[in-house]
Each structure stands twice: as structure tokens, then as C-alpha cells.
């Protein structure tokens, strides 16, 4: 075991993992995170806490993770390269581990142009692949990037993202291979709607044998309205929503019901794709749907290891 987190145990035991996402509030209320934690605790193995997603200032991921931890819910701390240099990053990793956080997800981060502080100076001192390397180096070599020794252990289960829908398509598997080479342990993908394209990507992944080296969790974003479907298609960076899904949402009598059904169908399909070791449900602002979907997908109860 690298960090001995629940997520690591589930994945290493060959079980199908379920993770979810809890976005922190635009405020200092612990209750927001706690409510999401309570809702999700029995239906997933770990909960991601986003790091100022879409460059909108929210409660820090580290604080959100600690709040979940206090409830007994296992967190995945998301960390983006946009806002911190290598000094702050390594410092936050040590702090997170000291506070009992073992899963960290390495991301580049959405450009600040999308957020509520577009006049900010970004950092991007290192990129997401180099962030994976940094964490691996801290864990395995017990060294900072400068080569100096870290006192004690830095147990980490290292995650990263992958987007099979971004371009160039042929490069996507190469980028995953680079993340594997950098030392990533698990991957949570961008939202899957076009299952056929995801399956093609997974085929390339398994051809290179990458599924043997990294656990891939298919990302899912439940759609609760036609408006959201259109918004996801038109404005969310790196997400591709096929016309078929849009039509289904448009024709549905009950949009929420249809949205839940679509996600359920996608789970059923991705579960059968070789190399997929779990799902990651990002129910932005609609966390209530997660317990129902996970149950209907036959993924409850979650194993206790």
C-alpha cells in the first residue's frame, strides 16, 4: 500500500470503485461540505473536493477535505497548478498528509479567464504531469524537488485527470502514458456521454497496457435539465454532449428522471469496458441524485475494507 486510503484498498483489491465530487461553498460555512459529506458517505468510496474549480474562488480544497475527514468521509484533495508554485504546492502536500489526507488529484486547472478573478496573475510554475512527478518524488524518494530530504513519510495515493474527448485524439493516450510514467496511481476522466468514443480511447489504453498500471475511473456528470445539457455542450471546456442525449433531454417529460436514467445507462455501459475500474460522479449542484444512481447501478453497499 502506498497510502493505505480506502480508495487505494478498493482499487488494489480489484473492486469497482465509486467516487463523487463535493464542491466547496463560496463562503466559510462548514455545513455545506458536511451536508454533502453526509449525503455521499454511504454511496461512494471517496469524495473529491475541488480546488477553486473554473477559477471561481471558494473555500480551499484542503479545508474542505479536513471537514470531510472529521465526518469520517474519505477525501480526495484536488490540486491545480494555476494558483500555486512549487514551494506552496509541496508545503500544502505536507500539510494535507499531516491532516490525514492521502488521496491527491493533480490538475492543470481551468484558466482564470473563466473565473471570477480574470485579472489575476496565474502561476503554472509546474504542469499537471510534473505535479504527479513532484508527489511521487515526495512519497518514494522522500525528497523535495530541490533534492533536500523530507523528514518522515509522505504516504500518497496519486490521482490525475484524463479527457478522451479533447484533441488531438491520438495524443490522448500518449498523455495518459506520460502521466503513468510520471507515477500516477488513479485517473478520473472528464465526463463520459459519448460512450463509443470513450471505448475507443480505452481500447488504445489497454493496447498499451496502461490499464495494468493505473486505475481508470470513468467520469460522469448527471444532467438535470435541457438547459444544463446545452450549457455543458456549448460552454464547458473539454466536454462533449452528443445530439442524442440532448434530444432525449428535450423530449423527456421529467428531465431529472431522464438525466438520472441516462447516467445509469452510461454506468452500465462503462462497467463493461475492459480496463475501467470505477466511476467518478460529478453531480455539480445535484448531489442528491448520487445515492439513487449508485443504488440503481447495483453498486451498493460499498465494500468496507
Amino acid at each position: 500500500m502506498k497510502a493505505g486510503t480506502n480508495l487505494e484498498k478498493i482499487l488494489e483489491s480489484g473492486r469497482f470503485a465509486v467516487t463523487a465530487e463535493a464542491g466547496p461553498p463560496k463562503g466559510a460555512s462548514a455545513a455545506v461540505i458536511q451536508r454533502k459529506g453526509e449525503l455521499l458517505r454511504h454511496c461512494c468510496d471517496a469524495v473529491n473536493v475541488t480546488d477553486n474549480q473554473t477559477a471561481i474562488v471558494r473555500m480551499s480544497s484542503l479545508a474542505g477535505c479536513v471537514l470531510l475527514k472529521q465526518l469520517g468521509v474519505e477525501p480526495v484533495m484536488q490540486m491545480v497548478c494555476r494558483d500555486k508554485n512549487r514551494i506552496a504546492i509541496q508545503s500544502d502536500v505536507l500539510g494535507a498528509v499531516a491532516l490525514g489526507i492521502g488521496n491527491i488529484l493533480c490538475l492543470s486547472g481551468d484558466h482564470q479567464k473563466f473565473g471570477n478573478h480574470p485579472t489575476a496573475k496565474n502561476v503554472f510554475d509546474i504542469d499537471s504531469i510534473q505535479l504527479i512527478q513532484t508527489l511521487k518524488n515526495m512519497r518514494d524518494e522522500k525528497k523535495f524537488l530541490c533534492g533536500e530530504d523530507i523528514s518522515g513519510e509522505v504516504p500518497l495515493f496519486i490521482g490525475a485527470a484524463a479527457n478522451p474527448y479533447a484533441d488531438p485524439f491520438e495524443f490522448r493516450v500518449v498523455r495518459l502514458a506520460k502521466k503513468v510514467k510520471a507515477g500516477v496511481d488513479f485517473i478520473q476522466t472528464q465526463a463520459v456521454y459519448d460512450v463509443a468514443k470513450f471505448a475507443r480511447w480505452m481500447e488504445m489504453v489497454t493496447e498499451r497496457g496502461l490499464d495494468k498500471e493505473v486505475h481508470i475511473l470513468a467520469g460522469l456528470i448527471p444532467i438535470r435539465s435541457v438547459g444544463m445539457a446545452r450549457y455543458m455542450r456549448d460552454y464547458v471546456s473539454g466536454v462533449s454532449v452528443p445530439d442524442e442525449i440532448l434530444t432525449r433531454m428535450e423530449q423527456a417529460k421529467d428531465a431529472k428522471e431522464e438525466g438520472a436514467r441516462i447516467i445509469l445507462e452510461i454506468i452500465e455501459q462503462v462497467k463493461e469496458i475492459p480496463g475501467v475500474h470505477g466511476v467518478h460522479i460529478m453531480a455539480v449542484g445535484w448531489e442528491d441524485v448520487i445515492p439513487q444512481v449508485v443504488e440503481q447501478a447495483g453498486l451498493l453497499p460499498r465494500p468496507v475494507l
Binding site: 494555476r82 504542469d127 479533447a166
Partner: peptide
């Protein structure tokens, strides 16, 4: 590259 990335296109690269 808007993020000065050194290891290839990020997940936000679509249609060039």
C-alpha cells in the same frame, strides 16, 4: 499556450 504547459495539450484543446 495559455497555461504555459510543457507536456502537451491539456484537456481544453478542442478542434485546434
Amino acid at each position: 499556450c495559455a497555461k504555459s504547459l510543457l507536456n502537451g495539450p491539456c484537456g481544453g484543446s478542442v478542434d485546434g
